[in-house]
Write a protein that binds this DNA or RNA. Structure first.
Lengths: 397, 397
DNA sequence: GACTACTTAATTCATTTTGTTTTATTTTTT
DNA sequence: AAAAAATAAAACAAAATGAATTAAGTAGTC
């Protein structure tokens, strides 16, 4: 059966036994990925597949070099189960995060372990040079992988949204001049010969979190991505929700301030959330008040000293965020909100704590569930690692 | 294989051949439901199943009395295809819409055709009496179905949200006193012996629209449900999105007005959208300005006379709605917005038109897709008909 | 106009393929 | 002996495959 992607008529596609097998394969792989060294019998229980079926599939996956045995468990009685786990170095992928102020690339293993990381600071680069530089770095990572005899299964690219999904990944960024209609996917694909997946940075970070982080145990969450701007990634039923045109979760341009004083935004409106809550907004705020030296360490130092200007910003930001959060909660009703991105960890914790305190009062009455507010467990460059998850996610998940 | 619903560990369940067969059956049935009288060969093309497989499944469905042959098509050449269609009277279901001001019940066929409708006006009834009355009406419909020798496959109940999904359908309505912790599902199930499904009225209406209305050709949409309050139903990838606690889409309590003048709302906040845009808000508005006689006909008459007070309300409502619409669009990025509920059709058309005009200016720049704004095609009592879709939807969809 | 051969597409029949399940057996521990 | 896990071979169910059949329309011929 040829499972060609169907056009408009939203009819679903039928299955056959081979499809079922592929699905089972993925289910087994997923189960091992999530529940980590695990016996075949246990997988069978979890997936409600037969022991035999699981055995066959595990056999096959092992032959493909994706799994490895991890010793026996000492149980009470009976034959001690042989545990299997994902062979982390079976394959790896490259994640690229292109943002307005920096470029990060990671070479990541199946479990999210980063083998090598490349960073570079820049400021609003032109697409042509940026892509050349990115390509050069990708080549370095390819060589690195080759030296270690590991296979690269693809490249994921995270770009600051919004992104056109339909026609070959074109970016349309109001605050990223020159990047309209750049075919990132096609360029990198033909240059590297690898499968390339492009996504919004916030969505990529959310996918990363749902694969490698606390998202593993959440069925749905909304990810606040603190980048130069403020992005939002949505995971529903364990799958990213990208929306009809691929631009769902655009939380940065929700209006939170109205009237004369509202700050204008590159998107054409004013009072947008990301003009108040984002790395750029923070740097602006501190800059206007005489602070300089804008990096994570400085921020952490300021925070530890409880710098008045920083704390003021954090408190204000918390209020704005809760505002947005309550609305998102009403519309999407996710299990949790995850806070991540480039804001240093202690600051994120402070923000979460502040939101947590003011949330109950702001939620509408009769709401049955107060969403959990969680700090992202992938801290370093969540978007880059999330991008690295895309090839694995798209092909096997 | 026993496909028991799995608990917390979000691992997926494996498939087998019987599952695949059931899926294919549903896919074929869905295809026929959506694409109307259709030949087996065409179904095969649509579903990318084999002709033979489709043939077998159609045979089976026909034997179950769900399908019927509908004559041959006269094509250009070759054997004229034998068309099959859903036998509309193969089964029917009961839809119940309980709202604060009225009760509607429908007996609907598979295609959404209403065989019998029962209505009753009331005002904030106590649950006990309301359920007794509803039960009495259900019994009437059951008898009606029995006289026509049709089988009833279940009862769907639409209630004004929010609803607790997890523990046996308990309602928690801020504007519907006395209805907290009423186990509607359990009561009706044990009284009628039929499977009962309870849902939020807006979600039910959205499901109805996606089954019987324009939603058939939409992969995702947001449904604005004009009831006593303002509800929101979300369909993503053709499936309702209910959220983690079953209360997604609660658009009525988004704040659209702030400051002193904001009207307070039963939810505890003030300035909520539904205090400005809803049937209750409209009646309040007209009542404050000396109008009386609150029913659809009066409204239509006022509209045709371009009554100044009504038009003012419509214009204001349009502005508030666009406000909410833009936010939802940024977050969810749906293919379309559908407007339906108890607001008379010409008024809905006027509202849509007004929103359509102001939308482009309000959307953020760089947005690739302007969502379509559509009038619901199920007009009468969308929630009741949608509720009737629930049993079919839950069991076969 | 009547007949025939040809084309096209839908449908059916018989056979093969595929992967899961079943059943029985073996292994390894308490 | 009992229990749990793993393995092996045969049974099974449903879809895929390919050839055959059916029902039209088309084109040419007499």
């Amino acid at each position: 059966m040829n499972a060609k992607p169907l056009q408009k008529p939203a009819t679903r596609s039928g299955t056959n036994i081979e499809h079922a097998h592929l699905l089972n394969q993925r289910v087994v792989f997923e189960t091992i990925r999530l529940l980590g060294p695990i016996s075949r019998a246990e997988i069978a229980r979890q997936t409600s597949l037969t022991n035999q079926t699981v055995s066959n599939i595990v056999e096959q996956l092992k032959a493909d070099g994706l799994l490895e045995a991890k010793g026996r468990l000492t149980t009470l009685r009976g034959q001690p189960p042989l545990l299997f786990d994902i062979k982390p170095d079976a394959a790896c992928s490259i994640g690229v995060h292109v943002d307005r102020d920096h470029l990060t690339l990671v070479l990541a293993q199946l479990r999210g372990q980063v083998l090598k990381q490349l960073c570079r600071e820049w400021y609003l680069p032109r697409p042509k040079e940026a892509l050349e530089i990115a390509l050069d770095h990708i080549r370095q990572l390819q060589e690195h992988a080759q030296r270690n005899a590991t296979q690269i299964c693809g490249v994921g690219v995270a770009l600051p949204g919004p992104i056109d999904f339909k026609k070959g990944q074109v970016i349309h960024a109001p605050n990223f001049p020159g990047w309209e209609a750049v075919d990132v996917q096609h360029f990198l694909m033909s240059a590297t010969g690898l499968p390339v997946f492009v996504d919004n940075d916030a969505t990529a970070a959310a996918v990363g979190e749902s694969w490698y982080g606390i998202g593993r145990s959440l069925e749905s969450f909304f990810y606040f991505f603190f980048g130069v701007g403020l992005g939002g990634g949505i995971i529903l039923r364990g799958q990213p929700h990208r929306g009809f045109s691929g631009n769902a979760g655009e939380v940065g341009h929700i209006a939170v301030v109205s009237g004369r004083n509202a700050r204008s935004c590159g998107c054409g409106n004013s009072g947008c959330l990301e003009r108040y809550v984002s790395m750029a907004a923070l740097y602006d705020w501190l800059g206007e008040r005489g602070n300089k030296g804008f990096d994570s360490l400085t921020l952490i130092r300021l925070f530890e000293a409880r710098d008045r200007r920083l704390m003021e910003w954090l408190d204000d930001s918390g209020d704005y965020l809760v505002d947005a959060l309550v609305r998102i909660e009403m519309l999407l009703d996710p299990e949790a909100f995850v806070f991540g991105g480039r804001l240093p960890s202690p600051l994120v914790e402070y923000l979460i704590d502040r939101c947590q305190r003011s949330l109950p009062a702001r939620q509408m009455q009769g709401r049955l569930h107060t969403p959990r507010l969680l700090k992202a467990s992938v801290t370093d460059d969540a978007a880059a690692l999330g991008a690295a998850a895309l090839p694995t996610h798209m092909t096997s998940g």
